[in-house]
Structures are given as C-alpha cells and as structure tokens.
Simulated assay, not measured.
Amino acid sequence: MARFDRYLLSQLMVLFGFFALVLVLVFWINGAVRIFDRLIGDGQSAMLFLEFSALTLPNVIRTILPIASFAAAVYVTNRLSSESELVVMQATGFSPWRLARPVLVFGLLVGLMMSVMTHLLVPVSLAQLKQREQAVAENVTAQLLVEGTFTHPSSGVTFYIRQIDTDGTLNDVFLSDRSNPLKPQTFTADKAYLVNGADEEAGEPPDPKLVMIDGLSQSYQVETQHLFTTHFNDFAYDLSAMLGSGSPPGPDVRAMPSWMLMAQPGEVERISGQSAGRIADELHGRFQQALMCAVSALIGFSTLLVGGFSRFGVWRQVVAAVLLLVLLKIVESVIVDPVRDDARLWPLIYLPIVLGLGISMAQLAWSGRARRVAPPGGETGAEVTPT
C-alpha cells in the first residue's frame, strides 16, 4: 500500500478501536445492570452473573461494529479536512476514488471482524446462553431455597423459609398462592422437603414437588367469604406450573451455525419451528451485517468529502451522513417483514447495501466533478478537472 493509504488506514483503525471500546462498554454495562438485577434478585451467585454477562458480549460487539466504523470514518475525514490534509492530497493529483481506497480496505477489515462475530461467536454464545438460562429455570434450589427472605418465584406466589438444615430439611415454611384470585390458598408447615416426582432414568422432564409435614392449609372462598382450614400430617404441593418447568422449547435460529442454515434449511425449519422466511432472514442477515460495516465507512467518508474544505467546519455534512445512515437502517427494518413472510424475497435483504454503495459512488463522483474557476476580471471560467 502507498504511504498515504497506510497513514489513513492506521488513523481509521485507531479511532475505530476507541469508538468500539466506548460503545461496547456503554451497551454492555447497560445490559449487565438488567442481568444483575434479574439474577442476583433471584438469589444467584456472582459467578453466574459474570458468566451471563460474558455470553452477551459477542452480541453487543456485533451491534456496535457498524456504528464504530461509521464514527471512525467521519471523525478521521473531518480531522483531515480541517487540517487541510485532504486538500493537499487532492492538489497532488489524488482523485476522490483514490482517496476512498484505504477507507474501503478499512471497511472490509471491519466486515471481516463482523463475519467472525455473526457466523461463529454470536451463535455459539447464544446457544450457550440459552442452555444456561434453561438450567437456571430448572434449578428449584436457586429460586426457592433462600433463608429468612420472602421470595416471589412467580406472579401471585410468596414463599418463605426460616431455616434450611444441612440435610435439606426446610424448617417453618410459609407458602401463599394467590394465582387464583377467587380462591387464594395459604400453607404453613413445621418442616418440608423438595423432591423430584419425575423418573430421571426414563428421561422425563423435572417435576418438582414440595412435601410439607405437620402443617395447616387455609383456603378462602371469595364468593361466599368463607375460610376453610385443614390440618395435615403431610401434603404434596406441585411446583411445576409455578416454576415453569417442563420440556425445553425448540432451538433458536439465531443460535444455529451458518453452515446448517445454508445446507439444511428444511431440517432447521422442522426442529426450530420457524418459517423458511425467518431462516432466510437470519442467514442472509449475517452476510448483510458484514457488508454494512464497509458501507457505513464509505457513507461517512464520501458525504464529508462532498463539502470540501471550509473554515466553518463540515458539521452540515456530518448531519447529512448521520441522516443517510439512519435512512439505510430504516430501509433495513422495512424489508424484514416481507422477507420473513416469503423466503423467495431474500435478495431484498441486500437492498440497503446496494443503496448505500450507490449513494457513496454518487457522492464520490460529485466530489470529482469538473469545477469552473472564474479568472480575475472575467465572466467566463475555465474547467479544471481534478485527477
């Protein structure tokens, strides 16, 4: 590469790394706060919170890569323009197409990073995250076995344990079930045990039950306003509906590898329960996201190049570049539903890429157009065509 290409590419990569780091931290911390509130509030450990946060990181990086490439291209182009470096390079014979070459190389490098994320890291992390979420959902101990704290494992249900012995005995148990507002129930027991009523060797899904010993059941009839109480020696309360246990849902298309989406679309449709359009949108969307990184960088560079040098800055071009990127994202969101309804419309997924490349090429051509320079004291001008 020429010295100028290496110089511009190095500037773009440095600024891209800075913007990517800042944006990843902002997005990741925002998501980590919600994960922390959900997991720690349910009595999970800090290590599980760190694991969940790490598994969400690839998807966060995938989201911010096009934004970071666009921001780096705009910032570097603005700085080169304000310091007249672009003017000097154009005066030496560099055309806008020649100036855009390192920007294109930069966009392709970022697109390569995006391809690694979309085709490899993101599906693997989403698959692992779903497995861990399913394991946590089936972990009755993590949801219920909290000493001295009123927990709410589901809507309308309150559970309390005074003390848990080392052998798993629950002492002084309180359970309030208000899921049926017409017939709320309350159970208290001196001791209780958590047991699994399913046959694990037969591969049955977990069927957790709470067996209470020496307790009292209170059932209130709202219509008649009568309270019925029953003393029992032992009573089994089914926790399956309350904890949402049962057979796990089908695999998520987003967590499947790209080779499987390409080679076995019919099998993916069968095991996931998703339509052919949804599968096509996911597969081609992974390629489209990589190309969008290059298009975003070219949009930012070409839009600022149109304005040329100005002592008042290029803030209008920056606003125009942002609006053009927003326009591409709007087009991208509009074509999602038609493709998901009809898989044969998958070429529409690449419409934002074609539109973005067309806009960039038009702006580069406009930047290299022939300009008329009026001579001193003359009314007509001579054409000067930059090379």
Rank of each mutant, 00 (worst) to 15 (best):
298 L>N: 11
354 V>P: 08
250 G>W: 00
327 L>R: 07
294 A>C: 13
321 A>L: 00
345 L>N: 00
296 S>D: 10
277 G>K: 05
281 D>F: 14
273 G>H: 11
299 I>C: 01
374 A>K: 15
278 R>H: 14
363 Q>A: 04
325 L>V: 14
363 Q>M: 05
353 I>V: 15
370 A>W: 07
246 G>Y: 11
362 A>G: 11
335 I>W: 04
294 A>E: 10
287 F>G: 15
345 L>W: 02
359 I>C: 00
300 G>A: 03
277 G>H: 04
292 M>C: 05
319 V>Y: 10
348 L>R: 03
258 S>E: 07
376 P>T: 13
355 L>R: 01
360 S>R: 06
281 D>C: 07
363 Q>F: 01
243 L>F: 12
287 F>N: 15
262 M>Q: 14
365 A>L: 13
323 L>S: 00
308 G>R: 14
274 Q>C: 11
312 F>Y: 14
242 M>F: 01
276 A>Q: 15
293 C>L: 10
376 P>V: 14
242 M>Y: 03
271 I>T: 07
283 L>K: 05
352 P>I: 12
255 A>Y: 08
250 G>A: 14
351 L>R: 05
287 F>A: 15
344 R>S: 00
350 Y>D: 12
244 G>R: 08
256 M>G: 10
366 W>A: 15
299 I>S: 04
309 F>N: 14
297 A>Q: 13
249 P>M: 06
374 A>S: 14
315 W>P: 02
358 G>P: 08
253 V>Q: 12
367 S>T: 15
266 G>M: 00
292 M>Q: 13
262 M>K: 12
348 L>K: 02
327 L>W: 04
277 G>Y: 01
353 I>Q: 10
282 E>G: 12
336 V>Y: 02
320 A>Y: 08
352 P>E: 04
282 E>P: 11
373 V>H: 03
340 R>P: 10
289 Q>D: 14
352 P>A: 04
255 A>I: 09
306 V>N: 11
350 Y>T: 08
314 V>L: 13
274 Q>P: 06
324 L>T: 13
378 G>F: 11
370 A>R: 15
333 S>E: 10
325 L>Q: 11
369 R>Y: 02
293 C>A: 09
286 R>M: 04
284 H>R: 13
296 S>E: 10
